[in-house]
Amino acid sequence: MNGKRWKRSATTVYNIGYHLIWCSKYRRKVLVSEVAERLKELLLQKARGIGVEIVQMEVMPDHVHLFVKTDPTNSPHFIVHQLKAYTSRVLRKEFPFLKSRLPSLWTRSYYCESVGHISEETIRKYIEDQKGK
């Protein structure tokens, strides 16, 4: 088991990825031009700080898509909370017009889907097939 697909810790071999999406408050189209560029920098910076790899990122005018890889100790909720809190605080400080247009930068909700190399159907079949062994 070696290659880029798996990562290792002292006791674990893992491949954990999440597709995360969250929106600006009221779906306001404020994530454009300098705000969008700065948001990308801040997301990469904070992700490195919490041990998360951003594999793919797309900032749309009113929402953010991320594909992240992490270790088993980071929950999706922790990752999203850290990224949203940090970026909101810094962006609202650096771009004061965001404070006047929105009570907060992000909505309280987010979307999360686990992403893996093996499909759910394959895992179900593998577990079912273990009975006969």
Rank of each mutant, 00 (worst) to 15 (best):
G51E: 09
N15Q: 12
R48F: 04
I127E: 08
G17W: 02
Q56V: 14
R48I: 11
Y14S: 06
Y26S: 12
K25W: 15
K99W: 10
Y26D: 12
K93Y: 12
V30Y: 10
G17Y: 03
Y18N: 08
H117M: 10
H117V: 15
V80Y: 08
V52W: 04
T12C: 06
V115H: 02
E37A: 07
D71V: 07
Y110R: 07
E128F: 11
Y14A: 07
S9V: 02
L42Y: 08
G49R: 11
V59G: 05
I16S: 02
V35G: 08
T73W: 06
S109P: 07
S75H: 06
D71G: 12
R92W: 00
I123N: 03
V52L: 06
I79A: 01
S75T: 15
L66H: 03
L98N: 05
K93W: 11
T11G: 04
L43Q: 02
R124N: 05
I118S: 08
R28Y: 12
V32E: 03
F95P: 00
I123E: 04
R92H: 00
S9A: 04
S75Y: 10
Y14D: 10
P72S: 08
T73A: 09
K125E: 15
Y18C: 08
T107R: 09
G17K: 03
K125S: 04
K133L: 13
R48K: 13
H63T: 15
L44K: 14
Y86H: 14
E37L: 09
Y18D: 07
H63K: 12
E41W: 03
C112Y: 00
Q56K: 12
M57Y: 03
S24D: 06
Q56C: 11
V115F: 00
P76A: 15
K93A: 13
R108C: 02
R27A: 08
S88I: 00
E41K: 06
R92Q: 02
P61Q: 08
G132T: 13
V68P: 02
R28P: 04
G3E: 05
V55S: 07
T12Q: 12
C23V: 14
Q82T: 11
N15S: 15
R48S: 12
I50Q: 03
W6H: 08
G51M: 13
V115M: 03
S104G: 04
